[in-house]
Amino acid sequence: MSIKTITEEDIKTLETLAAKYPVRRSALLPMLHYVQSIQGMVSPAGIQVCARVLDLTPAEVAAVATFYTMFKRFPMGKHHIGVCTNTLCALLGGDELWKQLTNILGIGHDETTADGLFTLERIECQAACTVAPVVTVNWEFMDSMNPKAVRELIEKLKMGAPVQSTRGVQITSIADSGKVFAGINDGKYAESPLADDSMLAGLRVAKERKMSAPTGKGTK
């Protein structure tokens, strides 16, 4: 896989990110997300560029890049697949889905398929325990998964067929998600589905049983 070069245009974007903060170094995480979205990884070149823009040494930037699990030092595939194997998801089926995905894709943790399509990762709790077990594609959530849904998901992604995340947007690539992490608004906020069963569970019971918060002077 050839790795894209970071262009002058990209450096201008990095400058805008740095300008958002009272102290420019605060932009380092967003900047690393951005260079990773261009190159599919945080490469030595990406580290150099961030260091230059923020007037840091490459070692200082590398120290930060290696601390956070979302930053990869190897090229990711087009799609990043995460399987939550923290306790609750694991027990409710995440372990089973993990085994299944390693079999289907023929790769293990932090590995990429030979065709460059998928990178697989065991991930920690995604704050979606009410919709366990959770699988992520480019960090977009696929809630309440099961083996059949996982098989179909991978087939669709292989064919390039449209896949809608249950909480996020239509799946494109890990590169696009990276721009959002960098703080660049892609305007797709309304593409996420509306509140799901798990989010509405309490409100529905409250309405059924005619329960509500006390009426306040400002209640509308």
Binding site: M70, Q126, A127, T136, N138, W139, V180
Partner: peptide, 23 residues
């Protein structure tokens, strides 16, 4: 006069909604 919303990285759906709300 300055506030920061530090959202965990792995939740693009929530990040988009908050970015939009701020705008």
């Amino acid at each position: 006069n300055h506030a920061f919303i530090y959202i965990r990285g792995e939740v693009p759906h929530a990040i988009r909604r908050v970015m939009n709300a701020v705008e």
